[in-house]
Simulated assay, not measured.
Amino acid sequence: MSLVNQLKDQMKDAMRAKEKVRLGTIRMALAAVKQIEVDTRETLTNEQTIAVLTKMVKQRRDSLAQYAAAGRNDLAQIEAEEIQILEKFLPQPLTEEEIAALVDASIIEMSASSMADMGKVMGALKPKVLGRADMASIGAMIKAKLQ
Rank of each mutant, 00 (worst) to 15 (best):
M28K: 01
G71W: 05
R61F: 10
R22D: 06
I36M: 07
L23T: 00
Q35W: 10
A51T: 15
I78S: 04
L64R: 11
S63L: 12
I26T: 15
D62T: 03
V38E: 15
A80H: 05
V57I: 07
Q59C: 14
D62Y: 06
A69N: 05
D39C: 08
R41K: 11
R22C: 04
G24A: 04
I50H: 08
E79M: 01
K58H: 11
A80W: 04
Q84G: 08
G24P: 09
D74Y: 03
T49Q: 13
Q59S: 12
T49H: 07
K58V: 11
Y67T: 09
D74N: 05
A69R: 06
I26K: 10
V21N: 01
A68P: 01
T45L: 10
T45W: 11
A32W: 00
L75K: 11
Q66I: 00
A31W: 01
N73L: 05
V38Q: 11
T40Q: 15
Q48Y: 05
T25E: 02
D62S: 13
R27H: 02
E82F: 00
A32F: 08
R60L: 13
I50S: 15
E47M: 07
V21G: 09
V33H: 07
T40H: 15
Y67E: 13
R27V: 04
D39Q: 12
A65T: 02
D39S: 08
K20N: 07
I36L: 10
A51C: 11
I26G: 14
A70R: 05
M28C: 01
R27M: 03
K55H: 07
A70E: 02
K58C: 15
V21M: 03
E47S: 08
E47L: 14
I36C: 03
A65P: 12
K58P: 15
A32G: 02
A51R: 15
E42M: 08
L53E: 06
D62A: 06
S63P: 06
A31K: 07
T49I: 09
I26L: 10
G71C: 04
R27A: 05
I83G: 04
I78P: 02
V33W: 03
M28Y: 10
D39R: 03
E82T: 00
I50W: 03
Q66F: 10
A68G: 03
T45K: 11
N73R: 01
T45Y: 02
Y67C: 06
E81G: 09
A69W: 00
L44N: 06
V52Y: 14
A70C: 05
L53D: 10
A70F: 02
E81Q: 03
R72N: 13
Q84S: 12
K58M: 08
D74A: 00
G71V: 00
K55P: 15
Q35Y: 14
V33Q: 05
A80E: 03
A51D: 07
A76T: 02
Q59Y: 12
R41H: 09
R61Y: 09
T43D: 12
T54D: 05
E82H: 06
R61E: 15
V21K: 03
L23E: 05
V52W: 10
E37K: 15
N73V: 00
L75G: 02
Q66G: 04
E79S: 01
A29Q: 06
L53V: 14
R41C: 08
V21T: 06
Q66D: 04
Y67W: 11
T43R: 09
Q35M: 11
R27Q: 12
A68R: 09
E42R: 12
R72F: 07
E82G: 01
K20D: 10
V52S: 11
L64Y: 13
